[in-house]
Computed example of a mutant assay.
Amino acid sequence: MTQAATTPLPAEWRDFFALTKPRVMTLVIFTGLCGLLAAPGDIHPVIGFAAILCIAVGAGGAAALNMWWEADLDSGMKRTAKRPIPMGRLDPKDARDFGLMLSGMSVMIMGLAVSWLAAGILAFSIFYYAVIYTIWLKPRTPQNIVIGGGAGAFPPMIGWVAVTGDITAMPILLFAIIFMWTPPHFWALALFVQTDYAKVGIPMMPVVKGEKSTRWQILAYSVLLVPLAAAPWFIGETGAIYGVAALALSLAFLALSLPVAFRQSEANDTMKPEKRLFAFSIVYLFALFAALVVDAVARNQGILA
């Protein structure tokens, strides 16, 4: 039982903010915004702001529910032991209620201010992360992050739908890119924190299948990511700015996955290959979606055909 379950300390606003996983939320907000900005058509700035705010609040609500459910697991892992609930700064029930409030409010406002299709996708993304991934997949299968990766892939689709009002090939591709990016991104992290997962019994890929299998799967997903990331250019939905950037970034991602797969690192190398890949994977997604927006602006201005 965690300290939070017995004698919770007075909570501060920072503790509630920490429940929303602000670092993860940054990437969620950015990809959602890029989906909105790159989508064809116009949206009123106020409605656009409301859409991004709802994506952020919904993601924060799902994260809070994740931390509530996994409080005992978090207390057993070095990487997460200082989160608000394990440290006893928040009562678990308060965290749960906070997550439910944020989740419900974000979906309702999205529906009323933007569209009910966007709200429906947002609601499903919250359910996907808080229930399908956190409660069902994560404690049961090493494929948890493969299937569960869909939770983080919804924001650009929601942003796109907020503008266009429908689901076409392009938002599905944006979803698929993040879906394919998630396993090598997360497994690179899991490789150097696998002892934490093993200690609390979470069946992450390196723990269950071993490092060798995980490293080869990282390479396989990195190979598949190259044509998938460039697919919007191949089907004519983007121009050369995005296409060239997607190929360059994806090939760099693949190049960094090779030493992970083949364990090409020096004994005294303080920056191990998996750490390099994990760090670059974050830059990769930011740069890829930034290129998507730059390409869309250039095309709208007639700079590119």
Rank of each mutant, 00 (worst) to 15 (best):
C34T: 09
L37I: 08
A38R: 09
A39V: 09
A39P: 07
P40N: 04
G41F: 03
G41T: 05
G41K: 11
D42F: 07
H44R: 14
V46M: 13
V46S: 07
I47E: 12
I47Y: 11
G48W: 05
A51W: 02
A51F: 03
A51R: 04
I52D: 03
L53P: 08
C54R: 04
I55K: 02
A56W: 03
A56I: 05
A56Y: 01
V57N: 01
G58N: 07
G58C: 06
A59S: 15
A59Y: 07
A59P: 10
G60V: 02
G60F: 02
G61C: 10
A62W: 07
A62L: 09
A64F: 07
A64C: 10
L65R: 12
L65D: 03
L65E: 05
L65G: 09
N66M: 12
N66A: 12
N66Y: 07
N66G: 11
M67V: 14
W68Y: 15
A71M: 12
A71P: 03
L73Q: 12
S75H: 15
K78N: 11
K78C: 01
R79S: 14
R79Y: 13
T80K: 14
K82T: 15
K82H: 15
R83G: 00
R83C: 02
P84V: 10
P84F: 06
M87W: 01
R89Y: 11
R89Q: 11
L90Y: 09
L90M: 12
P92Y: 10
P92A: 13
K93D: 11
K93H: 10
D94R: 14
A95K: 06
R96H: 13
D97Q: 15
D97A: 13
F98A: 02
F98N: 01
F98M: 02
F98E: 03
G99R: 11
G99M: 10
L100H: 10
M101G: 06
M101S: 10
L102Y: 06
S103Q: 10
S103D: 08
G104D: 08
S106R: 03
V107H: 01
M110C: 07
M110G: 03
L112M: 15
L112G: 05
L112R: 11
L112D: 04
A113C: 13
A113K: 07
V114K: 09
L117Q: 15
A118I: 09
A118L: 09
A118M: 10
A119E: 07
I121E: 05
I121F: 08
L122K: 05
A123F: 02
F124A: 04
I126D: 01
I126C: 03
I126N: 02
Y128N: 13
V131W: 13
V131I: 14
Y133C: 02
T134R: 13
T134S: 11
I135F: 04
P139D: 08
P139E: 10
T141K: 03
T141F: 03
P142A: 01
P142C: 01
P142L: 04
